[in-house]
Design a protein around this nucleic acid. Structure first.
Lengths: 148, 148
DNA sequence: GTTTGATAGTTGACTGTGCAACTATACACC
DNA sequence: GGTGTATAGTTGCACAGTCAACTATCAAAC
């Protein structure tokens, strides 16, 4: 669009802040969730995605897309959660190649009990540091980054 | 600060956009840098950090902090870069426990040759999708998130 | 109905990263 | 000067995630 930038372009400061803020906040949330709930952040994310999905289930590929994870990554993640009884696999009737990852009641309970820790963290490390207006513009900007 | 939030708080949309935007952009940059330059994004980040540091060197712990990486992670990362000749370890004279990770000339060259690919990606996937004003507010907001 | 190409998901081999435990050095205090 | 505590960095071990190769199924073309 504009000409090529150099390593000293001042706009890169925003990019670096973006990277660092993400890394720090996620690292802290990860540690807190692990310490208080013995749960990995990715596992939590799966439960959230399934909990808001239609019929509390998602095709493996859609889950992978939501989590920005490779398909094999999704396979193994769901493997682990199945072993814990939080998720179950259901073969898709209309497309026999496919699998639903479906949230069990135990999974829903686990999500409910882990949520307070996680949400408190998100609030403390992220939301409370931004004004309501800021949060709105942030959402708008990042949706622009995500577009197409 | 404000009362505890629930999983349905509307402010969480900003948080989710933040997570997804980060994951998508970083995944794309990672793939492009790997494909075009055979280099991992983390490796690139090390070279950048060292290149802008005083005397082009950084103590292991400071490097770990900059990269938001564990100390063992930094050790192994520097191990790999030393093996490639892009970085070298220098024992710190004033504190014999310490090590400097120091950018070699080869490392500087490698950075210079990889930069165009990376910067083009950052521009395309991130910078060009935001206005100059947006980038400024973004930087301000994220520095607030990083504060203290 | 068979062939051809695309898609869904899993598996094997490998890599990167974290935590906990460890070694070595520094610093403070008696 | 010796003792105790903190800090810098590395290593063992475990585990999560990626890419490439594979199997099974679907859909289209003929």
């Amino acid at each position: 669009m504009t000409g090529t930038i150099t390593r000293h372009d001042t706009r890169l400061a925003s990019w670096r802040a973006f990277l660092q803020a993400h890394a720090r906040v996620v690292r802290d949330l990860e540690r807190e969730l692990q310490a208080d709930q013995g749960m990995a952040l990715t596992d939590y994310d799966v439960l959230v995605q399934l909990s808001v999905a239609e019929a509390r289930r998602l095709r493996m590929s859609d889950l992978a897309d939501q989590l920005v994870l490779s398909r094999s990554g999704a396979t193994r993640l769901v493997d682990r959660l199945c072993a814990e009884g939080l998720v179950e696999r259901v073969t898709c009737e209309s497309d026999r190649r496919g699998q639903w990852a479906s949230l069990t009641d135990a999974g829903m309970d686990r999500l409910r009990s882990a949520a307070p820790t996680h949400l408190r963290g998100v609030q403390e490390h992220f939301l409370d540091r931004l004004s309501t207006d800021d949060l709105a513009s942030l959402e708008r900007m990042l949706k622009g980054v995500l577009a197409d």
